[in-house]
Design a protein around this nucleic acid. Sequence first.
DNA 1: CCCGGAACCTGAAGGC
DNA 2: TGCCTTCAGGTTCCGG
Length: 270
Amino acid sequence: MPELPEVETIKCELSPSVAGKTIENVELLSERIVKRPSHEEFLKGVIGRRIESLSRRGKYLIFCLDSGNFLIMHLKISGSLFVSKNREDMPKYTKAVIALNDGGYIFFRDPRSFGRMWLDKDTSEVEKMLGPEPFTQEFTLEELEKRLARRHIPIKAVLLDQAVIAGIGNMYADEVLYASKIHPLRLASSLSRREIKKLHDNILRILSLAILSKGASVQNYFRPSGEKGKAHFNFKVAHGLGGKDCPCGGEIIRIVVRGRGTYFCPKCQK
DNA sequence: CCCGGAACCTGAAGGC
DNA sequence: TGCCTTCAGGTTCCGG
């Protein structure tokens, strides 16, 4: 599942293949892959445009076009981008093919079909929905404290709320809570300053480590080269990948919080 | 405004 | 072996 570290890896590894290149053609192989505008308008807006740069905000991937418009993608839970010079390399479940003027292709693959892309005149709509970006000056301990104080729901649910912090998904939320020794059902508003400090530190530490490991390849995440990431080898609890038992001697259990599978150690996490 | 739950989608895994 | 059911998950939408 692409969360911040996975989308960051895709951005970094895709950049050299797309920056400065012109989009020669786009094939839309699924009705739903483009959110807006119509397929016809979308194609008119992107074909012939040069990609100036590629950036990321939360889990959104943003192509800045020379027209001043932005091609924005969200991979949701099973989307991935694959790059090749050969059209025949098109993977199964490809929903869109972007052909560049250097002969390269970007394949938007997505077995679950939740992923979308769209064209926008600016990025304000994305910006409006998202809280602070972890690796920026806006993500301070004080800001996190302020945001948690007014939420009277489980901390796990708050970490998943993109309006509170951008980029954390189900896997990293579990890892961060485990490292911080905080029970996922604790109400966000009940956390002490000391606990929020640990949370803040661990968010930055765990996300950076995952970026260094090129993301976590559970289920459908692949890097643009087709290679997998290695971040899941560091997982202590997420997805049950840490094993059945915690080093403390307790058992790692799974509960459901806001409809999401949540792994934690009830002995360590209070 | 705040919160919980359903819906979207479909391959994989589990049950019989 | 094979059919049927259930599950997973990011985001959006709806109802209380």
